[in-house]
Design a protein around this nucleic acid. Sequence first.
RNA 1: GAGCCAUUAGCUCAGCCUGGUAGAGCACCUGACUUUUAAUCAGGGUGUCCCGCGUUCAAGUCGCGGAUGGCUCACCA
Length: 499
Amino acid sequence: MKGRLKVAEIPEQELNEQMQVRLGKLKELQAKGISPYGQRYERTHYASAIRENYEELAEKDVVVAGRLMAKRTMGKASFAHLQDFSGQIQIYVRLNDVGADNYEVFKSIDIGDIIGVQGYVFRTRTEEVTVGAKELVLLSKSLRPLPEKWHGLKDVELRYRQRYVDLIVNPEVKKVFVLRSKIIQAMRRYLDARSFLEVETPTMHTIPGGASARPFITHHNALDIDLYMRIAPELHLKRLVVGGLEKVYEIGRVFRNEGISTRHNPEFTMLELYQAYADYHDMMQLTEEMIAHLAQEVLGTQKVIYQGTEVDLTPPWPRLTMVEVVQKYTGADYYAWASDAEARQVAKDLGVSVSAQATKGTVLSELFEEKVEEKLIQPTFVLDYPIEISPLAKRKTDDPNFTYRFEVFITAREFGNAFSELNDPLDQRERFKKQMEQRAQGDEEAQLHDEDFVKALEVGMPPTGGLGIGIDRLIMLLTDSPSIRDVILFPTLRPRQDM
RNA sequence: GAGCCAUUAGCUCAGCCUGGUAGAGCACCUGACUUUUAAUCAGGGUGUCCCGCGUUCAAGUCGCGGAUGGCUCACCA
């Protein structure tokens, strides 16, 4: 019979007593002509809808379906809790109501099995809204015991590896992922309402660009070429702005071949958007308005608590240049440095190690990362990044050593990166050359020269503002999750043979 | 990649310091019970103590090596 499980197919060492018992029950049901894996089932109400609309539904018939989460058998009558997507509802099964055969079947049903129940809505003596079963059908037999009912599944490794179990027994986990979906939906609505066009660009690139990061390499057989999983959609999106798609965005996965931590997963989700005829000031306004709007819409407030600290997302957020913010927190004054060597000495005096080739700009950025970032708990825009570390951003007209670029920090983490896009193809080609020189000197994360992208700029790109936001970190903030793995359904883990 | 910590029953955890018959709760099994809700009552332990090597008369416990995970750091967003 199709779908029938042979005992031999389950690894022997996993066949513990509880699984053997369940397999035995499955076979008994089959012997009685009852399929343990049912067909389409038409339910009328979610569990929560019945609890919330008791007055209308009292004494009426409903059909519910879900997973059996608790079972209390008292001889010829039983209570149980059924869990569906919306929550739980109690069911009451009485021998007199369902008949001896059905009651026997019910007694053999295990916690974890998926059943359908048709019955009348009533309240028990203790006022709990309950479905009194008239008919009951097994829709799917569960062969593995669920974790314990009070403590749930705590083992973090098991929670990530068997997210399906985590979602069943830890209700707050489901809540986080429902919120994640709502936040991204609201983000799309926000951008769509402002006439941004959602696009999809390749995730496999011949030249990985748009960010400084090491890529994953893969291979296309028919073309016999190596391809790189994208580290950013940036260069393709800007090609679209050249093509006249004046406001575009993409919400999609990017891949970076780097370390894993509570804030980093090798694949993560980014929002990138580009707006022709705008600049980075427009991007700041859009950033603070959109994030505040998302918090308001999904959480009903712009003051969120993250790991015990209140973060106020109400716009406007402070704007400080990198030079200002470094001076504020370290006392070091960029404009007082006469040379790169003097800058390096200042770094040394502050206990920040920089390379022997470090320039004033890279020293400034190192000081910022080492001494300032950790202080930026409330939302803060940091403006005007050094040109050396910003190869895709437009040079400032009043100071060629800096760019019209900002990053936004909340809870000491970078949430977004944006610039007035560099649209001068000659300058862009020069910047790529500089990056390639750094690469030749061993910097594996320096950006690659993408001549086709330069060609696109030669066709002509309007002045454009661009913005990238790390979605996972935003979800962490809005769901108060301490680890990025709490907001990614299947975080990257090393595979195990024994699990 | 480095440091610290963890890994014992299906799940949540004791036991390790101070080596001597493998423990608890839930789950499960047998029986009782027609409004229970951490149901209750009577009975039953179901185990590759993460893996390997070593020390020892004897290792879940001590030592060394390894695996996986968590946290911190590094890299990065």
